[in-house]
């Protein structure tokens, strides 16, 4: 039996939507709040089917442009990275869904603040004066960082990737958060930065072909991390440094605004503005 899209309103007024692997928590403030939440729900009704229709194409490195608006957001987020590393539009799927829903909300009328959180990948809309506070927690629940985003920061997306998520990773990054102009861009960057935090060839890292775990993974036979055994502190620093260098390149190319990389109790922060780094 097929599950239909599901809806819940939480006691604090946020809207929850779920269909298949998509799980959204949506908040809106401002005159068009009710209209925006309705618009979100309307847009959500078909979004999964639209993506599924183009799934084979979205699981390939970005070449031919897909049709759907969400698929195009994914494609556009993956494309700038494709010349350097292996990436498919699927690296940005969660962020792109959040972004697409947010776009429908913003189009419905004036809002002071709105956000769509798709399993930790967040699309943000802030008008002057509004702020969005985010806290990043590690896999054990401990807080790794906290920051406040203002409209002038130019950040429309916050995405987190890593070993705790349900996506497969080529690297060993435990929690990598990327801040970018859009949620899809942040999602693609976080995915690739979590891959970049790595110790290639290290014996304590067990990897298996992605297809052994998820037969239809876009990663094909690429080795994905299943277990990270003991690594030294120096090795953890080395892995983080690889990720950090990649983050610096992305920031230089204008693909992200900042990033927070976490591994084995260590955190490295790349920020465009020191005020973001009050962790």
């Amino acid at each position: 039996m097929r599950e239909r899209p599901q809806r819940a309103v939480f006691p604090d007024g946020r809207l929850g939507l779920r269909h298949g692997p998509i799980e959204l928590v949506i908040g809106a403030e401002g005159p068009a709040r009710a209209a925006a939440l309705e618009a979100a729900e309307r847009r959500f009704a078909t979004i999964l089917e639209e993506l599924v229709a183009e799934l084979p194409l979205l699981r390939q490195p970005p070449a031919a442009l897909p049709e759907g608006p969400t698929a195009r957001r994914m494609w556009a987020a993956a494309r700038p990275h494709a010349a350097r590393v292996f990436v498919t539009p699927m690296a940005a799927v969660a962020g792109a869904v959040a972004e697409e829903i947010l776009a429908a909300m913003v189009a419905s009328g004036p809002l002071v603040k709105a956000y769509v959180n798709d399993g930790g990948d967040i699309a943000l809309h802030l008008e002057a004066g509004a702020t969005y506070a985010a806290a990043i927690r590690g896999l054990d629940g401990s807080e790794l960082g906290r920051f406040t985003i203002r409209p002038e920061d130019g950040i429309g997306g916050v995405a987190t990737s890593g070993r705790g998520g349900r996506s497969l990773s080529l690297g060993i990054g435990e929690s990598v958060t990327a801040l970018a102009a859009t949620a899809a861009a942040a999602d693609a960057a976080a995915t690739l930065l979590a891959n970049a935090v790595d110790l290639p060839g290290h014996k304590a890292i067990r990897r298996v072909p992605a297809r052994d775990l998820q037969p239809d993974s876009d990663l094909g036979d690429r080795p994905v991390t299943v277990e990270v055994g003991p690594i030294t502190e120096a090795e953890a620093d080395e892995a983080l440094a690889r990720g950090f260098a990649e983050a610096e390149w992305m920031r230089g190319a204008g693909l992200i605004r900042g990033a927070l990389l976490h591994l084995r109790g260590r955190t490295r922060i790349l920020s465009p503005d020191p005020s973001l780094a009050d962790a």
């Binding site: 269909h19 298949g20 692997p21 599924v52 052994d212 775990l213 998820q214 037969p215 239809d216």
Partner: peptide, 23 residues
């Protein structure tokens, strides 16, 4: 050892002992 989940339109192909994309 693999099954096709039909709980949502994604129709994940799931290996034995594994979860689909939704977890």
């Amino acid at each position: 050892d693999k099954i096709r989940c039909d709980a949502c339109p994604v129709l994940c192909y799931i290996a034995e002992g594994r979860a689909g994309a939704c977890d």
